[in-house]
């Protein structure tokens, strides 16, 4: 692989294959921790760190892990790195540890990380997997920042915890609650649909095709059509 394609492995996660707005993975933290920029950035970087490390280890072990038990193996590797990040944050950044709370532990079951392990790291060489992890992790961070910017500026009248003069007195309080999260996320996905339509690409749908458990879903009789409910969205 030459230098350009290496770079594109990293940058494709930023916009073209953004894990949140295009692949629609990792919805839970996207809505839960984006009430402020501080939480969004720290969550994004914590997930990026876990993603890079787990991608590297899974890629190194890709010929050793038996196919049948690969998902439990991936989960154990990911959970190990999440524990590491938790311990480091608890020791050095206790405020952020408190702020992220349970969502830090739940990086373990974030489908971006499991999805990249399944889709990329288990099939590619270590260096490419690390770059893919970096790109996807930063793409996740960018998406969280977009959400948090809208919610913090209009919901709290603040930016990075600092008051904005005029907006401070005219806040839309519900944006900082969970309904606001669903709403802003819906609007941003609509924006992503418009951009995808302009480029002639299919509209974003719930990331079932990327989900490591898609096979289970299908055998459960939940068809792609049920899962990805975007039929008629872009015809």
């Amino acid at each position: 692989m030459d230098k350009n394609s290496k770079l594109s492995v990293v940058t494709k996660g930023f916009l073209k294959e953004n894990p949140v707005f295009v692949l629609v993975l990792g919805t839970c933290p996207t809505i839960a921790v984006t009430t402020g920029l501080v939480g969004a950035v720290s969550m994004g970087l914590a997930a990026t760190a876990v993603l890079i490390c787990s991608n590297l280890v899974i890629s190194l072990l890709r010929n050793i892990i038996p196919d049948k038990v690969r998902i439990p193996c991936f989960i154990v590797i990911i959970a190990g790195f999440v524990t590491l990040v938790q311990m480091l944050m608890h020791a050095y950044l206790p405020d952020l540890y408190e702020l992220l709370g349970i969502y830090l532990a739940l990086i373990t079951v974030n489908c971006i990380i499991l999805g990249r392990a399944e889709m990329f790291a288990s099939k590619n060489r270590p260096l490419d997997s690390v770059l893919d992890g970096l790109g996807m992790g930063l793409g996740f961070t960018i998406a969280l920042i977009c959400m948090a910017l809208i919610r913090e500026v209009f919901g709290k009248g603040q930016i990075w915890g600092v008051d904005i003069p005029f907006l401070k007195d005219h806040t839309i309080g519900f944006l900082t609650k969970s309904p606001g999260g669903f709403l802003v996320f819906g609007l941003l996905i609509a924006l992503s649909t418009v951009i995808a339509a302009k480029q002639g690409k299919p509209a974003p749908k719930l990331g079932c095709a990327q989900c490591p458990q898609a096979g289970i879903c299908r055998s459960a009789g939940v068809t792609d059509d049920d899962c990805a409910k975007t039929e008629g969205g872009n015809d």
């Binding site: 309904p179 606001g180 669903f182 609007l187 509209a203 974003p204 409910k229 975007t230």
Partner: peptide, 12 residues
């Protein structure tokens, strides 16, 4: 808004 966006707004 058809598909995922309206679903999310309904969830909201």
């Amino acid at each position: 808004f058809r598909g995922l966006p309206v679903t999310l707004i309904a969830a909201s």
